[in-house]
């Protein structure tokens, strides 16, 4: 199974907080890969690193054998035309209609005549079931419809790779079912490589061919959905079964509870404080 994306020894920090420290993973070509993990472990950051929107501090990311960090600004923008990304919010342009939003990448990257653009846009909107909403503005759409329009926009240039950032977050069961079906269907019919980051375990495992679980800035489990369900790792078990406490603690790192309640500050603990009152 050849890989489409290779992440090698990746390090990245936000301020003083280390997000990734030597992360390595590989995403197979032509499959749906789910990257899962608790909130705040850097799943969206990983997508931005894959898309070259962020620069890693160490290591490298190869997309179809190409290291985006070595590309110039113009080359990078050209390379990105081969990938689509579905943002959590949909990120539709609020001043354009649904039709204009989907037509936008075609107008930006091709010199196709208007009648051909119209045909392509209508086909893509039909694929997501929203051909009838073409004249609506993003403000008139529901959350599920917004994501489907964004999905149509992200596949309009027939990309080789599509990345989904939390596609199921905040969706009602019907919209979620539609999105699950669309992700699988589009991947199989268009021959894409799909990467979805999510913490909706059931939905993600139901459609993916390959799953990767990340915690503490590293991969803690990878394999088929079945392999993950059978994993012996306590971290993977906690995540897959949705247990509130375990290796990933319930509490965010903090100083001693008793000291906090008594109002003892750090300088007092170090013997530097001059006392109170």
């Amino acid at each position: 199974m050849s890989s489409y994306i290779e992440v090698e020894n990746l390090s990245f920090s936000r301020g003083y907080r280390k997000i990734f420290n030597g992360l390595s993973l590989s995403i197979p070509r032509g499959k749906v890969t789910a990257i899962m993990g608790p909130s705040g472990i850097g799943k969206t950051t990983l997508l931005k690193l894959i898309g070259g929107q962020l620069r890693p501090e160490g290591g490298r990311v190869l997309v179809d054998g190409q290291d985006f960090q070595t590309l110039g600004r113009d080359e990078l923008f050209k390379a990105r035309a081969k990938m689509g990304m579905l943002f959590q919010s949909g990120a539709l342009f609020s001043d354009l209609t649904v039709y204009e939003n989907v037509a936008f990448p075609l107008r930006a990257h091709t010199k196709l005549p208007e009648d051909m653009i119209r045909d392509i846009v209508i086909m893509k909107l039909n694929a997501v079931g929203l051909r009838g909403a073409r004249d609506m503005k993003p403000s008139e759409l529901s959350g599920g419809m917004t994501r489907r329009v964004a999905l149509a926009r992200s596949i309009v240039l027939d990309p080789a790779l599509i990345m989904y950032d939390e596609p199921f977050a905040g969706q009602d069961p019907i919209a979620m079912g539609v999105l699950v079906q669309l992700i699988r269907l589009l991947n199989d019919t268009l021959g894409l490589t799909s990467v979805l980051v999510s913490h909706d375990i059931a939905e993600s495992l139901s459609i993916c061919d390959h799953a990767i679980v990340i915690a503490d800035g590293r991969v803690i489990g990878a394999g088929s959905p079945e392999e993950l369900r059978r994993s012996d790792s306590a971290l993977v078990k906690q995540f897959v079964n949705g247990l509130p406490d375990g290796p990933v603690p319930f509490h965010f790192p903090a100083r001693d509870y008793k000291d906090d309640l008594l109002g003892v500050d750090d300088s007092d603990l170090l013997g530097l404080g001059g006392g109170r009152g």
């Binding site: 931005k48 929107q53 990120a91 609020s94 990448p105 930006a108």
Partner: peptide, 18 residues
Amino acid sequence: ATEQLSSLEMMGVDPMRH
């Protein structure tokens, strides 16, 4: 804030120019 600038970047359109 609504990720429109990021989505432009990911579409291969430079927000600085557009």
